[in-house]
C-alpha cells in the first residue's frame, strides 16, 4: 500500500489537493527507550504534478510533524486530470502515488 493518500475537491475554479503521508519524520534528536538517539529519517523533497507537469515542490527537514499533512490549491483542474505526488527522504527511499480528480 502506498504511503501517500491524496484527496481532491473542486470548488470555485480551483482544486484543493489534500495529502497525508505516512512517515516517521525523525529529526535525529529524539531518544528511544534505551536512551539511544534515533537516527534522522525525514522527507527531504516532495513534488506535485498535474498531468505530468510539475506544478510545485517542497523542501523540508525533520521539523515537519510526523505523518506530514499538506494542503495545496491548484488553479483550474478538471475531472479526469491526474495528480501525482512523489517524495524522497534522506535515506534515499522514495514513493509516489496518483489520483484522478473526481
Amino acid at each position: 500500500m502506498s504511503s501517500i493518500k491524496i484527496r481532491t475537491k473542486r470548488r470555485n475554479g480551483q482544486t484543493q489537493i489534500r495529502t497525508l503521508i505516512t512517515h516517521p519524520m525523525e529529526n535525529g534528536r529524539n531518544k528511544d527507550k534505551k536512551k539511544q538517539l534515533i537516527p534522522a529519517h525525514y522527507i527531504q523533497q516532495l513534488w506535485v504534478e498535474h498531468n505530468q507537469v510539475k506544478v510545485m515542490s517542497c523542501n523540508m527537514a525533520g521539523s515537519i510533524s510526523k505523518n506530514p499533512f499538506f494542503v495545496f490549491q491548484l488553479i483550474g483542474g478538471n475531472v479526469g486530470d491526474k495528480i501525482t505526488i512523489t517524495w524522497e527522504d534522506n535515506l534515499g527511499n522514495t514513493d509516489t502515488n496518483d489520483r484522478i480528480i473526481d
Binding site: 506544478v55 510545485m56 499533512f69 499538506f70 494542503v71 495545496f72 491548484l74 488553479i75
Partner: peptide
Amino acid sequence: AVASEVTA
C-alpha cells in the same frame, strides 16, 4: 499553476 496558499 498553484494558488499561494499552503497548509502544513
